[in-house]
Design a protein around this nucleic acid. Sequence first.
DNA 1: GTACAAATTTAGGTATTCCTAACTTAATAA
DNA 2: TTATTAAGTTAGGAATACCTAAATTTGTAC
Lengths: 225, 225
Amino acid sequence: MPTVSKEDYIKAIYNTKNSGNGTATTSGIAEKLDVSKAATSEMVQKLSDLGLVDYEKYKGMSLTSEGERVALQILRRHRIWEMFLIEVLGLSWSEVHDEAERLEHSTSDFLIDKIEEFLGFPKFDPHGSPIPNKNFELPDAPLIYSLNEVSIGFSYKISRVLDKSNELMKYFTKIGVALHKEVFVKEILSFDGSVVIQIDGNEITISQKTAGYIFVCMPEGGAIG
Amino acid sequence: MPTVSKEDYIKAIYNTKNSGNGTATTSGIAEKLDVSKAATSEMVQKLSDLGLVDYEKYKGMSLTSEGERVALQILRRHRIWEMFLIEVLGLSWSEVHDEAERLEHSTSDFLIDKIEEFLGFPKFDPHGSPIPNKNFELPDAPLIYSLNEVSIGFSYKISRVLDKSNELMKYFTKIGVALHKEVFVKEILSFDGSVVIQIDGNEITISQKTAGYIFVCMPEGGAIG
DNA sequence: GTACAAATTTAGGTATTCCTAACTTAATAA
DNA sequence: TTATTAAGTTAGGAATACCTAAATTTGTAC
């Protein structure tokens, strides 16, 4: 039963492995959690002692299977809470992030199961992220692409966004990025990787970094050229 | 913005003043929170420095008006969560205590207001306890009596129980103690203060201590002798 | 009014989780 | 291959919230 701190480190390691650069580094985790590298180094050693992280000094880290189970448990709590806050209480994308971030650390599995049941056992949360089931298994997900990997001149459907922060979600809402919406890719700027899309009839330029947080799939009936 | 620990101390001081012996003592708070008297003494001094508790060494403690505001804020969070867990998710008295105890420390006022709205602005929680409103004011409550203060040979309606613990709630459920139920007071044992009541047609003997956690009012149309 | 017991506080210490500064290891570039 | 820099770790320290054991204060009984 990890503390809030330990849960945050485990989550950060999981997210780095599963959505970003691939390898979890001391600096990377430190920056993500806004703590010093020294604190990260110490904590990773502690998590290693606890059997949650595989770690060799100076060589990097990764979650053990037990650590991954814990990560999926936290993810499950987070995503079920977001589902509840948005679908039942009517909060917005930008309002749920911080709330879920807190609630995920103080909710028993018992309660999470009850909420999941109340929600009708959803497989994906309101950001399009898969919700691990009671056994911490992820549902099969359709093939999706980051907005950085798409082809110019085609239309796609937004199928997932990563809720990195409050501010990012506010920005997405402002520019019209929402689940299941269609986007047409007009251009990718060669000099900085920015993606120019058409959404709701408006032309929007999104930086490469931010585009990495948006995922799309082929719309019904395949891509439209 | 107090920590979880500080919130627990403030709650304990508030509850002692408002439902028990009257005065909050170092020993009393220590026992209630299951920590040492030394830890309590230190913490009370810290809360005093923070302006939340009036405190003079060796003389006892009480909440300042700011401390009371914080107490009511925590009470509000706790009771709104209990209402939600029981009325919406269908949990039982004995299941909600520990959950609410955790959730009350990780919920923003913003979220609590949303849940309150979803619930239709209830004035009393499922234990019959008053819910402070957005301004941390308690609703007017009808006059109620502890089951220790009732008269033999009269009927009353259960209007409130104090959810001291999981186990107590399980016991109440087992013996048929529930909100709005009618109880007939058969006897009060002179040698230990136990209260003998008739509930659901069964005769039950309740210790004086436990009877103190049950509150009743006159049933519709006054007491029935 | 003093002496004892109970209640309370202080002293000294532990475990977490963080920090900055100093040091070590690894990677890179000439 | 060696010098330099970046990345990572250790050392020493702070804050929080506990603990046990040793004072200290208060209240009560005689």
